[in-house]
Amino acid sequence: MIEVNDLSKDFKVYHHRKGFFGSFVNLFSRKHRIVQAVDKVSFTVARGEMVGYLGPNGAGKSTTIKMLTGILVPSSGSVTVNGYIPHRQRKENAKHIGVVFGQRSHLWFDLPVQESFELLQRIYRIPEAAYRQNVEAFEELLNLGDFFRTPVRQLSLGQRMRADIAAALLHNPDVLFLDEPTIGLDVVAKARIRQFIQRINTERQVTVVLTTHDLDDVEKLCKRVILIDNARLRFDGELTALRRLLSTERLLSVDYAEDYPDVSIPSAHIVYQEGARVQYRFSPEEISAADLIGTILRKFRIVDVSIQEPDIEDLIKTVYEDNLMLERKLTEPVSGDM
């Protein structure tokens, strides 16, 4: 469905000279430096898959999406979506994909939602029957009815997002690209949109590529995640595999009965200490949880003890911060959809 090979994109960032004379010189020659936004990224996505494309701000998520949708021309590497090369066969590709950017609407600002949809019907040449069917389905699933005749500029963020997602699906695209679809929404609105995306993916077999930095989105929606940081691919595989790989590190929280001056334990690192409460980080490969607790019990009196699996937020933080990725190990595809 989607094939990305060694995809790179670099931007020229211009340096602006200051001053009256400088602005004059700017007209004729400008200094620039090159910023690598995406660096040799490769992955494939199979039909009907739902993939979370994650990364911190400025990691290159949107740039990748923009190359997949034909908005940007790659600097090198190759992309195909549905067999089309997006930047060369932009119009063909556009017919088969749906795109939603959380930060801005693709609808017409001063038109009511309904008219925006009708315009899209004409633009995509959607047959009347299919159009009716979709509008009815989406009206029900997303409660569009409340604001179907309201101009887009008057919609709330949540309403606008629902309208935008419905609009992106009117022409029954094979692939849906969602760039931060839940950004700025409240919990209820987020849940509704997630539910809808889930349904579209399972019922219509629409392939979904989702960028987000809301980890709830990922946990609720995606089996597979692709991590990108500093323009590079860091991980590609199932969420559970990511967890397993990184769960070599665990956390042990201990509430001691009294304040001991020295609570250090060999082969476990103190993450933080707050009075009698201490959190250790340890690796099960070095020392098993039972042994660790045994060691502690032998030395100190404790009130309570608990072991935590790191949650996905921590996982991703670890990936970004430590760069502990044994790249060979992690970039090996874990899912079998190649």
Partner: peptide, 14 residues
Amino acid sequence: VRGDFDTILIRPLG
């Protein structure tokens, strides 16, 4: 400036 050209590029028209 507003980034509206992105929208134009995702439509199946010139």
